[in-house]
Design a binder for these strands. Structure first.
Lengths: 121, 121
DNA sequence: TATAGCATTGACGTTAACGTAAAGAGCAAG
DNA sequence: CTTGCTCTTTACGTTAACGTCAATGCTATA
């Protein structure tokens, strides 16, 4: 169990950010009798997921969709199918982003070798 | 040669966006006698680069750095070395982002196969 | 129990990346 | 040449993702 400033330090973000994520429904820590937030290790894992999502450009709303998706009741078959459908869409998105990044990478590499050639030549 | 609305339609963005990019120094179209913007195919290529940069999460300021970098006078050896240095930093960034994306991809895939297993099992 | 140090909830401020509206000028078609 | 559409600049508005007080409350410790 961690308090909010523990989490903040651990992940290198501010407490304001953590409260904001909660405001958006991304986190749901329990509370002490006095009203202070306490975070379990599953809250911690959740936050880790959120931050990773952010790092490669998803909006907090998109991230919310994703984390809530894997959080709802998924006992029914229909629900499960919808989840799989959605997951595959996200997977396609991710694959597209990877492909684009690889293109950029190659473009930069081409430029770099050209410049290096100029230096030596 | 294209006018501003041609570009907008071509790329699915607004004319405001295009003017904003010019405001930031990302584009420098020539003008007609009457003051209207005209875009060459190199301006078009430039815009394509900008949009690609955006799609995977770079800020317009970062993108500006990158496009201006490959645009300046790079005749001097010193300048060339700096350029290569900078390019390699960007390359490292891109590689990191790719690695992260691949991790996410695998995480989603694991979840998907798990869910599918539940459906069949 | 008093106090120092985090915690809480408002609530207003900030920045990037545009949206939108106004007032005027260019330009092709009739 | 005038009508109608597109373009121009100027300028204020908006949204996401927080930053930054301010006023107040909990709590460990001396």
């Amino acid at each position: 169990m961690y308090c909010i400033s523990d989490l903040a330090e651990e992940f290198g973000i501010t407490t304001r950010t953590i409260r904001y994520y909660e405001e958006l429904g991304l986190l749901k820590p329990s509370r002490t009798e006095g009203g202070r937030r306490i975070y379990s290790s599953s809250d911690l894992a959740r936050l880790k997921l959120v931050l990773r999502g952010k790092r490669f450009g998803f909006s907090l709303e998109e991230i919310k969709e994703m984390v809530l998706l894997f959080d709802e009741d998924r006992t029914g078959e229909k629900q499960l199918k919808v989840t799989i459908q959605y997951g595959e869409e996200k997977l396609a998105e991710v694959n597209e982003r990877i492909a684009e990044l690889v293109e950029i990478k190659e473009e930069i590499e081409r430029l770099m070798t050209e410049f290096k050639g100029r230096l030596e030549g």
